[in-house]
Design a protein around this nucleic acid. Structure first.
Lengths: 204, 204
DNA sequence: GTCTATATCATGATAGAC
DNA sequence: GTCTATCATGATATAGAC
């Protein structure tokens, strides 16, 4: 709870985060984490009893970023269009700060999704509330009628996928020009908002 | 080249595909592949010298599905809107038949993307041609003006991401109701086409 | 708390009989 | 081609000195 900057535990967590994100649970090596932290393997097991436990510590830390309190926006009384814009802004702002998260989650999902689901339950995140709100707005004629699940999946896809597929974008579209790619990411919020609005507002 | 059904090599390739897709290169075990194929480890090394080579055989086999000949559609003379619809149909049709591909590619991308990029070059796939076609259609006033790269990324995201994130959709949105999820996937083509059209056609 | 040294075990790979 | 038995390596984990 209190400040423990530069403590050994902190150094281990930082190092483990770096290595686990880069290599995943299976690919990561305790030796590499120890080197990254500037200590030896024995100390890793002194602080965290096993690789499994160390990974769980990092995984939960990362999932806390991935499922933030967008709840506030969802619970607000704004009209649905404005609410969607705010969610896109919040979500892409988060991904810009932590661009490695989607790739990491994707990588570990098929290995063992149970940890992720426990977290989601713990944070009280309930997709049904979002779906109901969208359905209501459609019934009121605020936006075009469509299956709310498809709309939600469309929005999340356009936000998350470009980060998860970063190596492909970087190489195939941006010819390894990292600056151009970063610039592309910073434009996403504006583009995605406009794209969604154009797709869901009712044409006169 | 010739028919080699039920041959040992075929059995190994099938088993390896199953295990590599489920566990990835790092997570897969030669013993598990041998068990799945109904043989022993020694035979794996007799047919494929190492785990590395066996993985490469499977990986290239899978990438061949992932980058199919959508080239024909792209090279055609259809108007851009119709061309986009055909590409979405073709791409989602492919993913419905091989729903495991996106997850597998994502998982191996950060580990070592070089194999993927070699394949892409080998298939002569060139994204610039697509971007140029879209830009031209925008200049002609066929569709709304926007950065073609964002449009392409939007479309691919909405097609691929729902398959890559299958465990999340399955659990969080569909409460493990697999039939509902499959039905959702089969609706994607119609939904995505409509969504994109609504977003890019010029409103009167 | 931190280190060196070591135990224990799993895995990829090979040798050699049939 | 296929098997059993084994090797060599490297990984997690622990023991014990300081």
């Amino acid at each position: 709870m209190e400040a423990k900057k530069d403590s050994t535990e902190e150094k281990i967590l930082d190092a483990a985060k770096t290595v686990f994100i880069a290599k995943g649970m299976d690919g990561a090596r305790m030796q590499e984490i120890a080197d990254e932290a500037g200590i030896n393997k024995a100390l890793l097991h002194y602080y965290f009893r096993s690789k499994e436990r160390l990974f769980e510590a990092i995984f939960s830390q990362i999932v806390k970023y991935a499922f933030p309190e967008i709840s506030r926006i969802i619970a607000s009384d704004e009209p649905i269009v404005s609410k969607i814009e705010q969610v896109i802004d919040a979500y892409l702002g988060l991904l810009l700060k932590h661009p490695f998260i989607p790739g990491f989650i994707m990588k570990e999902l098929s290995r063992d999704p149970s940890g992720l689901f426990k977290m989601v339950v713990k944070f009280g995140f309930n997709p049904q509330i979002v779906l109901d709100q969208i359905q209501k707005a459609m019934d009121n004629g605020e936006i075009k009628k469509m299956d709310p699940r498809h709309l939600v999946v469309n929005i999340i896809s356009m936000c998350v996928f470009p980060f998860a597929a970063r190596p492909i974008l970087n190489h195939l579209i941006f010819k390894d020009d990292t600056n151009a790619l970063e610039n592309f990411y910073s434009e996403r919020a504006t583009i995605v908002k406009q794209f969604v609005i154009d797709a869901i507002v009712i044409k006169k």
